[in-house]
Write a protein that binds this DNA or RNA. Sequence first.
DNA 1: ATAATAATTGGATGAATGTCTAATAATTGA
DNA 2: TCAATTATTAGACATTCATCCAATTATTAT
Lengths: 189, 189
Amino acid sequence: MLQAKGEKTRNEIIECAKNLFYHKGFEATSFSDIVAAAQVNRGNIYHHFKSKDDILRAVVDQRLQEFAALLTGWERRLSDPRERLIAFVHMVVSRQDELARYGCPIGSLNTELGKDRPLLQREARRLFDLFRDWLARQLALSGTAGNSQVLALHLLGRAQGIALIAHVYGDRTFLLRETAELEQWLRRV
Amino acid sequence: MLQAKGEKTRNEIIECAKNLFYHKGFEATSFSDIVAAAQVNRGNIYHHFKSKDDILRAVVDQRLQEFAALLTGWERRLSDPRERLIAFVHMVVSRQDELARYGCPIGSLNTELGKDRPLLQREARRLFDLFRDWLARQLALSGTAGNSQVLALHLLGRAQGIALIAHVYGDRTFLLRETAELEQWLRRV
DNA sequence: ATAATAATTGGATGAATGTCTAATAATTGA
DNA sequence: TCAATTATTAGACATTCATCCAATTATTAT
């Protein structure tokens, strides 16, 4: 068997929890929600995870893998680092529907955990680190003027602001307009 | 008596709930938290509010009044609409500590409620409307090129992105750098 | 002063929360 | 094949949750 039985259950739990945490928020998602969505027995979850916090850690790890794969994919397909940066902006466009509905999965998670779950936020912040460091590397390769770490954080902030407003107003038009502007900025910088 | 006894209790509940919702989040704040902070009897809250959602509505109303007063204050003190826009940016700077610790009270609230409390988010969104419309008015008065509503939303998004990143990284240096840049942009636009 | 109204008390409500346990079933490796 | 490990089940656990109530106390108008 390529994937052991337990492994399959574990992945199902992670996948369902990931969507629930994104769509409802971490605090608002209950054990019963996860159990129902994953169609797993209540007690069985504790054979795979030792707590709800532990599930979140697994979800963050899974998201890290997902996004890391995305980034290396762009690196493989696009030789020009500036085109890779634009691919980042295009990702926002291609996810406009879910962003308008639920906000940014990384931003909203960190916003929630940043309030009073410092240890968990430390884990979730790694998702930001991943993008920040990758963007900084591409900016450096692009030969942009100025500190590439500074520019990377600026770019992250712009993207987060766009996702947040698009979510608050459910406004995809705003998202399209702002990402187009951001792309222009990237070509100039 | 200037303020009836009940009125005073009611305001105390609102004030404490406002801070708790901001510091912990709406979902993460329990009735017991509010009761303990406001030093009010458990059952007494239901004489003033009919539910937790109802408390949030009162908190939003209070924040609306607060911010509306802030805006009219700037209008009174500053005749140049462009200086008023800069005052908006300076507000972010002056609140850098709480923004880095808890994020933006308006943005984080809307992000949380936007996920699965559409009716409550509709209320909270009015806080964004207040700023958006005011900023648009000042931008129009400034004679900026381009649609002032569009520019206002852009400005709001920039501010939200700054607050979010500053919160995630607890980074006031980033906040200062980005707001300075935003101020320069405002003087140019 | 007194009747009417408003505010407060303290405890009770049932439902939902996350967590755990002991027993059973399934899968795996020798 | 059979012992050992891993996975699943069903339910119970104490606690906390938001909400509500009946009784009491304060306050307000007349």
